[in-house]
Write a protein that binds this DNA or RNA. Structure first.
Lengths: 255, 255
DNA sequence: CCTTGTCGAAATGTTCGACATATGCCAGCG
DNA sequence: CGCTGGCATATGTCGAACATTTCGACAAGG
């Protein structure tokens, strides 16, 4: 029955457990995490394993190891948010601080319309299939927004939709950057669910974006993407003044 | 003559040596690198050290470890180019294949005008100082383009100039993305030196960009950045059709 | 009283050897 | 012919010993 995957790792993964505690705020920047031998005892593992996992956190820029002293949690801006592992943890344990989330969202507001524009130019049939499948998944559980037990939640489809657009640019940088979306989208969905926003409207905006890309209309895709982002972002009170690119929408629509 | 870097690390660093051989094409995607024990013998180190370094390559997405079989070099698109270590190696040992370089350059052409625009809005006095210092460094060795022995080459100042603009956005994503510029800028400089391009003209374009940011003129900064990129990119025969954003320059200038 | 040198505890850094597990090949058996 | 078991090989995991770095205590000397 384990033919699928041995489930990644058999042991609890110290990195995972420590990351959870750090992301949840149990240890804050400047704090020192327990020393190696204590972690060994707590997880019933040897030092090699512990050090191996601690190195993951070092590579992620989350902790800093000081010889003969201990492992200190670094400041949030030092965290390497371009590391896919970090965004993975952010999706699972929420953001370490709201400022980082806000800046990621500002980044999205900057670039996503442009990414949609590029996708509309370069998307292949294969890309369109991926986008459409994700879109269909988003629409299928409109009445059950919480979750369906197919193993994939609504948020999974939402993320897949946006990631598929990034990949449709056929640019390696954009493709690899797409993981930045995950925590941001999850935040938007959770908060949007609280504040009353019309899911049908949101879905319609996504549909317009998809159609623009399918029709190979870069300019429409640009505008449609801005509409998608503006809809969800404004739903949680985030203004768009932070995106200097925003006003170029009018410029584009003028022509 | 190996007094280059007496600090940093004492041992040759297997990861460094292997990366060089992989980046130079000695091992290509699909090939298997020597097994652990052979590397131990070759570098006179124990397996722990070798495995520790091999893990760096795994994290960078460069190699894939197959239990009981060996370590295989992965395909270029799999390489994690958002990892700062990877771009560091690219600057030192050139790009693994030209396609990746071209895509990174396309990415730059896409986003740098926007980054300049955002920088013009958010730059602080401190940021302006960093930009100006880098600019002065670029101009100081105009007649000696190869290198001055202050320890900093012309390319260092060029990179510092563009990176400073990225950091001036005060957005964590843009700031951490700035390392993507390094290999791309080095490639441009090297190739530009071969093809005859006027360094004075390039410097003037950079000056205009800096002045636009200093004057807090986002629109001018957008256009100036496009001019900088177009100047160097066209110098080496790279057309800008890959950047669908290019034409929005005219849109901006219309208003 | 302040400075300075030395020692030692505590933590991380490094190395080594042994054993566990996964994979591919191939001979042996049904 | 096909399956199965074992063997060789390579990576994965582990535990202990030793080296190095850091900080604080403490005492000698100015």
């Amino acid at each position: 029955m384990k033919s699928k995957q041995p489930q990644s790792r058999k042991r609890p993964s110290i990195a995972e457990a420590l990351a959870q505690e750090i992301f949840s705020g149990e240890y804050q920047p400047g704090d020192f995490v327990p020393r190696e031998v204590d972690l060994c005892e707590r997880f019933a593992l040897n030092r090699s394993a512990v050090r191996s996992d601690l190195r993951q956190l070092v590579d992620a820029g989350i902790i800093e190891r000081i010889s003969g002293h201990g492992s200190k949690v670094r400041e949030y801006p030092e965290w390497n948010i371009l590391d896919a592992q970090v965004t993975e943890w952010m999706t699972r344990y929420a953001a370490p601080n709201p400022g980082v989330q806000r800046e990621i969202l500002a980044f999205r507001l900057d670039v996503e319309p442009y990414v949609a524009m590029t996708a509309a130019k370069h998307a292949t049939a294969h890309d369109l299939v991926a986008i459409e499948e994700a879109f269909n998944g988003m629409g299928s559980d409109l009445d059950d927004p919480a979750s369906n037990r197919d193993g994939r939640l609504h948020s999974d489809y939402d993320i897949a939709f946006h990631v598929a657009i990034f990949k449709a640019t056929h640019n390696i940088v954009w493709s690899q950057l797409s993981h930045i979306l995950r925590p941001s989208i999850l935040l938007l969905i959770e908060t949007s669910n609280v504040s009353a926003s019309d899911p049908a409207e949101s879905l319609e905006r996504h549909r317009l974006l998809m159609e623009s890309i399918r029709a190979r209309r870069p300019r429409d895709a640009f505008l449609a993407s801005q509409a998608v982002l503006a809809g969800t972002a404004s739903a949680l009170g985030l203004e768009i003044p932070e995106t200097p690119l925003g006003h170029s929408a009018e410029l584009l629509s003028e022509t």
